[in-house]
Design a binder for these strands. Sequence first.
DNA 1: GCTGGAAGTGTACCGCAGGTTCAGTTGGAT
DNA 2: ATCCAACTGAACCTGCGGTACACTTCCAGC
Lengths: 208, 208
Amino acid sequence: MAEGSELVRTRGGTRERIMDIAQDAVLAKGFEATSIEEIVAAAGITKSGFFYHFPDKTALARALLERYLHQEEAIFDDVFGRASELSDDPLQVLLIALKLLAEVVENLPDGHPGCLVATTAYQDRLFDAEVRALNREGVAAWSARFRSHLEAIAKTYSPERAVDLDDLADMVTGVCEGGIVLQKALGDRTAMSRQILLLRTFIGMLFR
Amino acid sequence: MAEGSELVRTRGGTRERIMDIAQDAVLAKGFEATSIEEIVAAAGITKSGFFYHFPDKTALARALLERYLHQEEAIFDDVFGRASELSDDPLQVLLIALKLLAEVVENLPDGHPGCLVATTAYQDRLFDAEVRALNREGVAAWSARFRSHLEAIAKTYSPERAVDLDDLADMVTGVCEGGIVLQKALGDRTAMSRQILLLRTFIGMLFR
DNA sequence: GCTGGAAGTGTACCGCAGGTTCAGTTGGAT
DNA sequence: ATCCAACTGAACCTGCGGTACACTTCCAGC
């Protein structure tokens, strides 16, 4: 009995649903403040359902972070893939990709919900070395991707000023992270995409 | 008995000590994960001692944020004050101030410990409207300060590209916040100051 | 059609850590 | 002698993470 109606039964998507709900809560309250009880209540299951899918709460944290990093990787693949189809010039590709990224972010209904990497970084004493390493490698992978694009650009364009390409690659990540903080703190959905576009302007200016 | 030695007794600084300890913990684990028990243990008092100073845990959060915003305000006053003594040109003042800010950050022994505004933004569902408003106004005040400097600059310098001064003012905050996230995620003390210096380069380039 | 097992749910329970309360103590200033 | 700010001790209660275990479904292979 209970509420057995709807379309929920034996969907197989339970694990994903748990993670969706958990991620929203973690990005709004932090990991410790997100209780298993509230997650299972929102997911329409019971505690044992949760512990069937995850051995303990820390496994949830790890799974969330892993999934998030893959999702972000997919978004970047998409954005840079589309950009590459629109131009052969490495500078144009990066500029187009940043524009597309700003659009993706802009089109999110309530703005960017928040970055799990940032929350994890700001709560890293909660997690073990494995999760911290995951987080580090995730950011490093983003930077490496941006860095390789910047190197391609630097082969044909000479920068207006001498800048460290590693720092510039980090800045793409950094501006996104900072943009999210701004957006959350100010309650302004558009802050992040405007920050990305401003960074785009600077990169365009740097390489003429 | 106990450890009554040292120099701790009746200092009057207990409240500040509580807040120092709490702030470190909050920046490393989040607010909910920071227990009153661990705070009082580290401060060498008892739980009831804590509740003498704060009516409840949320009052601690509010007090931490208020104090943090004042401290940051003081740092900016100092940095821009020193910069103003070194030059009359508004562009130079900003560039010097950013350099000084990078130095301040660089000289922190373990890097920047983290920004309370960012943690609060990433856990805002834990707090009431008052704390959220405090956070919003704090960031808005930083942006207003940068914005007024940028306006002074724009009076004498015409920018290389058309940029929105509000966005650029936000970017100073944003790059700092993003720099802290990078620093924490990568475990690289120097990331934040390098990001600030890179932003400085961009601003210098924008206004020639 | 029977059996087995993977996937998943429901109920009940435990220990304990966390926030909070309150009556009481201490020690210095007036 | 008194007063107050600063603090202590002990107790309380809720909610949380986690466990145990029996139960249900559904599919595969024999």
